[in-house]
């Protein structure tokens, strides 16, 4: 099965010199994880996203479409990146999710990809 690992983190974690240092550290650990996933044949795709300030949202309502500056939902935690992996079952996917480097306050959502 394919699973998406969706990484959510509060963005203020990156602010200040300490935040920048921890960001560098986390980025290095993401690289290491992506390498491990590739070697295990689990990696399908993955990427980190630019800060949420760069987001633009296309909203559709009954009267048509409008553009908005910013993310779809105003929450403290933002989608910061994702992995698309191949795993035999949920336990295997959770095993990878536990290895995703996430700083305190963040989370990693495991979602099976729908098959049609």
């Amino acid at each position: 099965m394919q699973y998406m690992l969706l990484v959510y983190e509060p963005e203020d974690l990156d602010q200040g010199p300490e935040g920048q240092a921890s960001l560098m550290d986390v980025a290095a650990r993401h690289m290491a994880l992506a390498k491990a996933m590739s070697e295990a044949g689990a990696m399908q795709a993955g990427a980190g996203l630019q800060p949420v300030a760069t987001a633009t949202t296309v909203r559709t309502s009954a009267s048509g479409q409008t553009l908005h500056d910013g993310p779809f939902a105003e929450t403290r935690e933002h989608l910061g990146g994702f992995y698309l992996i191949e795993a035999p079952d949920l336990d295997a996917a959770i095993k990878w999710a536990r290895q995703v480097p996430i700083r305190p306050g963040g989370s990693c959502e495991v979602r099976p990809v729908a098959t049609y």
């Binding site: 099965m1 699973y3 795993a87 035999p88 079952d89 949920l90 336990d91 295997a92 996917a93 495991v110 099976p112």
Partner: peptide, 14 residues
């Protein structure tokens, strides 16, 4: 069914 919960007795480490 949809999330792929494994039908296995988990290994001792779990």
């Amino acid at each position: 069914r949809d999330a792929g919960v494994p039908f296995e007795v988990p290994g001792r480490e779990m």
